[in-house]
Design a binder for these strands. Structure first.
Lengths: 346, 346
DNA sequence: CGAGGCTGGTGCAACGATGCACCGCATGTT
DNA sequence: AACATGCGGTGCATCGTTGCACCAGCCTCG
């Protein structure tokens, strides 16, 4: 089914069909338009995307590069972004970097080679240098879950929750409950948001007058490579075991994200402790499972749906080149969701 | 960067570059080949996929349509399928049907219009009629998590765990422990695998000599539309509440999948019962969280990695048209993983 | 009456890669 | 000498769509 066949069927030229298809039908006889529309219906014609893209250089696919679809948090982002995109006739191509910087770059390269001009990148990396060449060539980039940094390309849009504030909320919640020996559990602080969350944790301590030097244990495990998300739970579990081996184990634990927090809970249980009683645990993200777990998990919620919608909107307006070319940062407000995993120290 | 520029740089014709790129370099001077390779490197040339596809009608993208990326089970499939595909230079386009048959068909249509000739479909539907027209036109389809049915297209490949056996293993495990009042919790039995799992449950009861008529409660909630996967957990939670309201609540519960099982556990906890002591719960899938939950969840494992690899292999061999055109069914063996959520009735 | 403007279209040359048919040359065969 | 064969490449038409440049026919106006 080509545009030529439709044209023949309707008794017009391919150009005319193309004009109709591309909204250039101002000065077209209603009768002609109907003949074409009928022909399209009759033949079940759909434009060939490859040809269209070859010709125009544009397309309606955006890329989404996430660290790990194994983490329900990213699954949720994929869902929401896809919904937003779908509503406007866009498609989402999902790529899973497994937090491997090289894979991340390869994916962005591939997307670009595929003619994808807009990418939502959930990067693990503080520097976006590895994708700069493409940004210079016109790739529209939205960094998700990563606040903007010095050295970022001027056109970059950053969308993120305020990680520092979120983490501070979590920490403050624990100190408000009376905890004084706190720990922060995370993989390598190799990404911007992790650093931010750590900063929020420290700020929370300071505000409560807890001396970081003596009362904080922050077993930050792994090097920059050891960085997974499914592994986040394993990491949490191992970290918990390590913390329990201390002379004075912490009574409150802030985890880098919910998956990690669940691992911590598991590890605490391994050690015979009861979460929400012997030890308090706070997560980050508010994945669906936070409310299913036993005990239900106190956590910091990211307004995912809004963030995903914003990511799409930003990208779209730039792809249409109707939008601004200047980059910007959108910082969303996190919200503390208190559940059963936190309580006053016993 | 076009093939023409590479050709000029290397001092050959575009055809020659194309020949090299497409493995037709048998009779090419090693020296020529090197000149071309150097030119490619120097210019950072990557073939334009749209042009290539327009010309050949082929491409290296496969589609993956899943019911819900919100469920980590499907996230895991996406990960493994992508790994397998990536290793061979293929891409995976992920689509989220939310178990909406119409959306499912629309996606498959879209993929086809995009020139995608191979799709892994995790369908909610017993009938594949809605995609038959495309299959007749040459779409290669792999049905995942769905055994083959009468009326399926001849070319269809089905990949699934043996759901009936898995479910029977789960049920048997409970009866072996001494449970006699069992329940099966599921959304509408609107998909093939759900029906199969229910069948396995009934078979398990029969084998243990438990009279289904008197001792089984199977609150199968919702109509065919109410079918989500994130909602699976909510459904489980609600079902648990309902079961607890019975005069004689069941002591053992088989859930349609892990997310549902976690919901059930949550619901039981709401009712003040302890899972793995007062009530036993078995899930299905063995998602990562099964081993994190408190208590850890007894479940039926699907060999995901192998299944995903098989799906890709099957698809690939058919897309190369080197493989068989005849369809086939691959049924994988499920494995019962016993953890803490099951015990003898108290 | 001829210049200019509007209407409702159409012609055509791209976009970049592909792969069959073909070519000139050197060597071997009858 | 005439013809086949192998070698190392190249020429060219083609995939389906797009959108600028253009055109014929009719109307208007000075």
């Amino acid at each position: 089914m080509t545009i030529q066949q439709v044209a023949t069927e309707a008794g017009v030229s391919p150009s005319t069909v193309s004009n109709l298809l591309n909204g250039r039908s101002h000065r077209m006889l209603p009768e002609t338009r109907q003949r074409i529309e009928r022909a399209i219906d009759k033949l079940g014609y759909r434009p060939n995307r490859a040809a269209r893209q070859l010709r125009t250089g544009r397309n309606t696919t955006i890329g989404l590069v996430v660290p790990s679809v194994g983490n329900p948090f990213w699954g949720a982002l994929a869902r929401h972004l896809e919904s937003a995109a779908l509503a406007e006739g866009y498609h989402v191509l999902l790529c899973n970097s497994e937090r491997d910087p090289r894979r991340e770059r390869d994916y962005v390269d591939e997307l670009w080679a595929d003619g994808v001009h807009g990418v939502v990148l959930c990067s693990s990396l503080p520097s976006l240098e590895h994708v700069m060449p493409l940004v210079e060539r016109g790739l529209q980039l939205v960094a998700f879950d990563r606040t903007s940094q010095a050295g970022d390309p001027a056109s970059l849009v950053s969308i993120s929750v305020d990680n520092a504030v979120g983490s501070q909320l979590a920490t403050q919640h624990l100190t408000d409950l009376g905890h004084r020996r706190l720990a922060f559990v995370s993989g390598a602080l190799a990404s911007v948001n992790r650093k931010e969350r750590y900063r929020g944790f420290m700020a929370g301590l300071e505000q409560a007058g807890v001396d970081p030097a003596t009362s904080v244990r922050a077993p930050i495990k792994g090097d920059a490579d050891d960085f997974g998300d499914v592994e986040a739970s394993e990491l949490g579990r191992a970290a918990a075991a390590e913390l329990l081996a201390l002379e004075e184990p912490p009574t409150g634990i802030v985890a880098i994200n919910d998956m990690c927090a669940l691992g911590v809970c598991r590890g605490l249980r391994d050690g015979g402790l009861e979460v929400g009683k012997d030890v308090s645990v706070v997560g980050f993200d508010d994945i669906v499972l936070a409310d299913l777990y036993a005990p239900t998990l106190t956590t910091v919620r990211q307004p995912m749906k809004e963030m995903a919608a914003a990511a799409f909107t930003q990208l779209r307006s730039r792809l249409d080149d109707s939008g601004p070319t200047q980059g910007q940062s959108l910082l969303f407000r996190p919200e503390l969701i208190v559940r059963e995993s936190t309580a006053a120290p016993s």
